[in-house]
Every structure is written in C-alpha cells, then in structure tokens.
Design a protein around this nucleic acid. Structure first.
Lengths: 163, 163
DNA sequence: ACTCCGTTGTTAAAATTTGAACCACCGGCG
DNA sequence: CGCCGGTGGTTCAAATTTTAACAACGGAGT
C-alpha cells in the first residue's frame, strides 16, 4: 500500500468548487420548485422525462435509471405524483411484472406551468453565470464523467494494465 | 410576461451533464464511504472541516454554512458523530448560546483512515477523468457559481439596471 | 414442461433531511 | 436597568431516502 496520490492545489480547488456548487445549486432549485410549483426537484424531473418520452410513459426501472435514483425511491415518488393526479400507473402488456408510469394531462399542464420559473432559476444559478466557452467545457467534462460512471457500476480498478 | 428564455442545445447539454454527473458522483462517493469507512459523505466532510480548523473546532452555524446544510440537519449529524466518539461538543466561553463541535483524537484517526480510499474514489469518479485543462475550467466556472450563490441568498433580480 | 437465476416493482423499517416552532440569550437603545 | 429585534441551537413531526427483504415473473437450458 503506497502513499495515496493526494490532490494537488488545482485538483483540490476543482473538487471543492464542484462540491460547493452542486450543493448550492441543488438547494436553490429545490427551494424554487417547492415554493413556486409545489414540486420537489425529483418530481419535476419525473415529469420532464415522461413528457419527453414517446407515449408519455416509461417503465419504472428505466425511469429510475434516468433519474439516478433507487427503485424504491421512485416507487415512493410515483405514488405521490399519482396521488396528486400528475401521473398514473399502467401495467405493461408484454410483461406482467412491468409497470409504466404515464404522465397525465394534468401532469403536462403542471409541467408547462412550472417550467418557465424553473428554467429561469437554472439560468440564474448556473447557465447565465458562465460564458458560452465555460459552459462548453463543463458540458464536455461532466458529460464524460457521467458516461463513465454510468458504464462502470463499480470496479476497484478496471484500468488496463499498461504496456 | 414574455416568453421565457429556454435553454439552447448547448445550454441544455451542459445542464443535463451537470445534473447527471453530480447525482452519479454523489451516489458513488456516498457508497464508497459507507462501505469502506462507515461514514456518510456529510459526516466525512464534518471531520474534514474540523480537522482543518484552527483548534479542531468550529461553531455549529459556521460549520453548517460550510457544509451547505441546515442547522437542524447538522445538529443531527453531530449527535451521531458524538455518539460514535469522533466529535465532541464544547460550549462557547464568550457566548452561552454557542456550541463548538470539536474533533476528537479518535475522529482524526477515523479521518486519516478513511481519507486514502475517499481520495482514490474522487479521482476515479471525477479528477482523473478530466484533463488538467478541463479541471481548470471546471474549477473556475463552478467556483464562480458557488461564489455567487453564497453571496445572494435569494433575489428575484438583483442585476444592476444598465446605463 | 421444469428448474434455476436474474429481473421487476413493492414493501417495511430504519436512517436522514426538512421546516417550523421554540427557548434562551446577545446587543443596542431609551 | 428593561425592552426588542435578531441570533444560535435544539426539538419535534412530517416528508423523503435508504436498505434489505419479498413475491411473482421471464427466459434460457435440458
């Protein structure tokens, strides 16, 4: 066990900025959505995904993957949204176990109504703070980060042994 | 009420990458710390902050601000850490209401023992995925985002009227 | 058709977070 | 001194997330 590779100054700065910014942005958006639309950020994202989906519906597992949330967590949130009339459950014809979450007209309406305020908040918190170049760098960098983490569920060291 | 300024393709890509990456990274680190050190990410950060502080101690409110967490949330976590013997509470001499959270020797030891695995995970999830240039761009961009959000608790539109 | 393993979604219980309500106290002012 | 608005932490209940079972099912191999 050799000495770990600690972060140098630049790396530490990036890490701290990342931690701090993500927490602050999340907190801000959560607040804005709750105050202005009565939705949690998770719930909002559910509506976004369903609204964009082909039939306004997605399988539970697929949806959970997209939202980066646990299946049980999704079950809970879908139940809440269903109770609010924004989403409904439908069983899958080809697989008895399967369940589709489907956005309702009321759900689409809620989304339409919440979207402008949300987008504005996203701009204020993140987008409009950065230059287009910075935005591009972040999209590229964090896009790569996402891609890798999605590909590799958990591996101690998958790096190909050099040479 | 004019038509909201929706996100263009590039902005949307950046936003999605941001959302996705932050969720995935957080999830990964949470898991790693829990598995390898029995700490939540929040608890780990508490130890980091206290360890770095002058006397190994910080006021509750100061700590809550640094961690971007609520005061009641911190009260809970400090209680947990205290129960585990990693932190202790000490009252403030100059202000009867005040409470210091102070890291114990055992806490420092726990941190020392958890740090290498954590740093390695941070590298795998974020740092080593990016080039030094990308890291620099992210540090600059997200640093600015943090700075602004910390400065402006909540303002509909604080932008100075042009001219 | 039957067995076995992996999947799908839900459930239950525990852990954590949130938000409001609270108490006690600080500090400035009359 | 005594009052007042604001601060620092905690407490409580409600909401949400996590984790580990669970029950039922799909699908491939035999």
């Amino acid at each position: 066990m050799t000495e770990p590779r600690w972060l140098d100054e630049g790396e530490k700065a990036a890490w701290i900025a990342f931690l701090s910014a993500t927490n602050l942005v999340n907190r801000r958006l959560e607040q804005q959505l709750k105050d202005d639309a009565g939705l949690s950020h998770t719930q909002y994202e559910v509506l976004v995904q369903l609204n964009a989906a082909a039939d306004g519906a997605l399988r539970m597992t697929e949806l959970a993957d997209r939202l980066v949330t646990s299946k049980s967590g999704l079950t809970y949130q879908i139940t809440q949204l269903e109770r609010a009339g924004l989403v409904s459950r439908r069983s899958c014809p080809s697989d008895v176990r399967g369940v589709f979450a489907e956005i309702t007209d009321q759900g689409r309406e809620a989304l339409r109504s919440a979207a402008p305020g949300h987008v504005e908040a996203v701009r204020q918190a993140l987008i409009d703070v950065l230059t287009p170049e910075q935005l591009g760098h972040i999209a590229a960098g964090l896009g790569e980060v996402s891609r890798r983490l999605r590909a590799e569920p958990r591996c101690p060291s998958q790096a190909p042994q050099g040479a």
